[in-house]
Amino acid sequence: MKLEPETVEISVTGKPVQAKAGETIIHALWTAGMGDAIKTGCVGGGCGACTVTIRFKDGKPGGTDLACLRPVEEGMEVFPCPVESIPAVAPSLEPDVASLQAAFPTLNRCTKCGSCTTACPMTIPVMDSVLRMQEGRFDEVSDDFTTCIHCGLCRFVCEDKVKPHNMGLWVRRSQGLSRDNPSLDQSSLTESGDELEKEWSYLFTGDPKERLRRAKYFREHGRAGA
């Protein structure tokens, strides 16, 4: 099956750009020689550099998105919306509502407008999560922000100067710092015994071909051969 790709016209900062249907805004800009028009990082939806606002001539709802994931559509008007990062705030070994409030004094200023949730390109329930932060439900908050790429749009659109994604990271890091990791007890971190050196010496003996043979044996049996 061979179909010729349809051409659509979008505009970026007012400049018309011809694009192939199905490609992303970033790739359309590359083809048009306008790659510098929108700040770009990973080109895979993971770094949050290419934040944009989108409008449609026909009044269809637009909003915010990542230009590297958003396919072009006829009549789409794209405006770069780079969000500068703000200074980091050290996490706490004893995370609770009081220490979060001390780290982020605007925690309780949220007026529940929901803009942050609408702005999030990762479909995180941002506003609900801010309310959970106010109640100290940190396990849920950490879960909410698992997919956060720190594009900063939730903070950018907040009229009340709440910093949802920064708080989300603070909660996650603080929980990470303070939780128990039974897999990392002393016995799993320190290996000892006669076997240890014997096994290394088994794996390091012989010409390259012999070593490969020994490594194959070891991975199959979990121990050195005779």
Binding site: S183, S188, L203, K209, R211, A215, F218, R219, A224
Partner: peptide
């Protein structure tokens, strides 16, 4: 990190995966 595993087994898997072309000192 587990009892059935070891740094040597990690080495052996990676060395076989790398077709034995790994620098063994770096891999260790």
């Amino acid at each position: 990190l587990t009892d059935q595993d070891s740094t040597r087994r990690h080495f052996a898997d990676s060395y076989v995966g790398g077709h034995g072309n790994n620098d063994p000192e770096l891999l260790r």
